[in-house]
Every structure is written in C-alpha cells, then in structure tokens.
Design a protein around this nucleic acid. Sequence first.
DNA 1: ACCTGAACACCGTTCAAGT
DNA 2: ACCTGAACACCGTTCAAGT
Lengths: 226, 226
Amino acid sequence: MAVKARLNRETLVSTALDLADAEGLDAVTTRRVAQHHGVTPMALYRHFRDKEEIFDALAERLLAQVALPEPDHRPWHEQTRDVFDAFLAALRPHPAVAGLVLNRVLTSEPGLALAERTLSLLAEGGFPVDQAAETGSQALCSLVTLVITEPGRGDGPDPETRDGTVRAKRAALAALPPRRYPHVVAAADALASCASDDVYYARGTAMIVAGIRSGPATADRAATGG
Amino acid sequence: MAVKARLNRETLVSTALDLADAEGLDAVTTRRVAQHHGVTPMALYRHFRDKEEIFDALAERLLAQVALPEPDHRPWHEQTRDVFDAFLAALRPHPAVAGLVLNRVLTSEPGLALAERTLSLLAEGGFPVDQAAETGSQALCSLVTLVITEPGRGDGPDPETRDGTVRAKRAALAALPPRRYPHVVAAADALASCASDDVYYARGTAMIVAGIRSGPATADRAATGG
DNA sequence: ACCTGAACACCGTTCAAGT
DNA sequence: ACCTGAACACCGTTCAAGT
C-alpha cells in the first residue's frame, strides 16, 4: 500500500480489481482503495463521480479483456461458440467482479463490441433483430451466471476456506433424507463441487449454443403457448 | 411503521421483502427493518444470527412460493418447462430479491424440493447424475438471471423513473455510430426495453429447455473439444 | 425470553479549504 | 488541477444491561 505515483483512473481500477479478487467485491470500498494509494478517500472523487462509476469501470476492464476472434468463414454457430469462449476467458479470472457485467455490457466500448459481434452472428443465423437482441442478451448473461455460480467456489478465494465450505456443503447434501431427496443425495458430489472446471464450462457453453440453435421456430411455438 | 405485534421471523422477513420490492435490496438494512417494527436494531438478533441469515430467509421465502406442478405422464421436457414456469412465477414479482436465490437453492426445504424435482425430470430424460446436476443448476440459474436482467426494468420500481431510464438507454444506443455498431443500433428498442414480458420469458424458457434437450451427446462432443 | 442503550469500527459522500 | 480535513448520515455488530 501507499504507492506514491500520481493518481489516475486505470491504476485505481487495478487496485479495485485486486481488492475484489483477493477479498470479494465488498472489499472494494472508497476508503480501502484510497488507503492503498496512501491518499484520502476524497481523492478518488476527482477520478470517479461516485462508487457506481468505479463498478462501471471494473466491468469495463473485464470486457476489455475479451479477445474477440476474427470473423472467418465457418458456420455462425461455431464462431458464436468461440466468441462465448473468449467472453468466459475474460470473466473466469475475476469471479467476484463478473456479476457487475450483467447490466453493463451495453455501456462501454468493449461491451458494445462484444454485443455487436454477437448480434451480427445471430443475424447470420437467421434471427430477426428483436429476437436476436433477447437471445444474445440472455446467452451472454447465462455465461456470466456460469462464472458466478461455478460449483466449488465457496465464497472467498482462499483455497483452504473453499475446500472447507465445499466439504461442508457436500456433507449437508449427502446427509439429507434419501427417501425425500433421492436425486439430490445421489448428486451431492456434483452439486457441491465440480469434477473439472473446463468440462463444466464446455458443457455450459454447449448447452447455451444448442439453445440458441433451436432458434426462432421453437421460441415462437412456446411464445404462443403451444 | 411502528407495528406493535410481537416480533417473529416471518413478519420480519415480510418487512424485508416489502422494503426490497419498494426500494431495492440495498434498502434492506437491519436498522430500517427494525424501525418498521418500532424496535431497536438489536431486537432482530434474537431472530437472525446476522444479516446474511435475513437474506437466506428472503431467498427461502421466494422459493416457498414455487408451486410445483404434480408429476404426470407427459414427456419429461414438457414437465420440466412447467416446473421452470412455476419457478419464474415465484421470482418475477420480486426481481430485487431474485438474485439471492442464485446461491441458495440447496439450503432450504423449498429449494431442495425444486432441485429434487428438476433432477428427477433430467434423470427421466436420460442424463447421468453428474451431468444432471450441472445442467439443472445452470438452467435454474439462467432462469434467475432472466428475471434479474429483464430488459426495461431500469433499477428502481417506480414506473416513472423506469420509463426515463429505458428512454435514455434506447436513445444512447440509437445514437451510436451505425457504421461501427450496425446491429446494436438496429436492435436499440429490443435491447433497451421489452415488447412483451410474457414473450420474453416464454422465449427464454424455450431456449433453456431446448439447450437441455440437446442433452448429453452435444455436451460430450463439446467437452472433448470437437 | 425478549428487548434496550451505548458504543465501536466501519461506510459513501458533502462541503469548504488548501497548494 | 489535484488533494486534504472535518463533518454528516448512515451501516452491521459487540457487549452489558434491563424486565
């Protein structure tokens, strides 16, 4: 702490991100960020209008890490999966911050670039504009949720605490009355933790892409109550 | 405020829920809940260990509102859709609280009942236990996210403020450079608001169910990098 | 058993002031 | 332009005490 360089937006955001990664989003307070730079809390207000704007910048930082693959000539759904993978790759290192992205994709340049690309691919897939908007938003939000709720990430980032909560959670599920919750008890392991993160994300992405590919027809049938 | 009846868990949770519905989750503070009952903040600690436990109880309250349909003899995926509809019906009236459910399905009786039913249907659909766990969790979380991010619900519940933020959001998107963001600009309406809530949720649910029905085969192909 | 009162260590944010 | 200092209105939570 007490770094002496002149204050600026980007270094402050880096500090906030470090704090969130290390101790969770609640640790990102104006006072702690300021303290880390050896500065009064009010010094931040020269660079951010309020705390919400710090959160906006955190979300933007994550979105800026999305390395969108170049468009190519493969089918739209394969390219879509690659875009989703790039999105996940940016979110996964910062699970405590990922949730901030949920409502902030459309308010920064890198988020808009991601949205534009997604909508473009869905248009290629035959979606009308309005449905592409809903479908794309839902898909991106589901990917965020995948990261937020990744099984086995208790709450804190300490691998020790994490292991403890996972074990406790699994034990709690395994101890449930098996007559009443047979499937939950049988799935206790998978519900508490996660055999392989990569498989978890691959399956999740596959499921989302498959849902998208079911496309307009299925959705319209459902929307009219069929 | 200053209701005089003796304090108990359920009325306190009701107060917390009302506060959240009216002013958002941040309005749910120990002090305000206490004040609403004409009581010292510390009076709550006889009924809840800490604030987290109030949030747990809020999530449980929502899950208790899920009216699970009776099992019948229709195909598993149709029954799954009905279970999801019941879940959505419970969440939609309380969008400010819905997010609390994300990590709390497996820690209360009504949540476990929902999980058990979901896993049971997925087992009927041919999913192996572990994959059913992941798929079911992801589906339920996606439904929660659908409610949290419903387009057109700005932040507050005031229909006036909401209309303003929707209009501002749409204007901001429509004013983007159309050469750079052609699809975003074209979809500004659908991205900012939502033509019909029911269609939005019907399509969202259809997409999730379709993703599930794509099932083990698709997922395994993706997981092994195919 | 149930609630109070005072206190502590925190918040975000304002305002006026320094350099 | 950039930062400080003091203050305000809030938080969640503890501890000891009342009845």
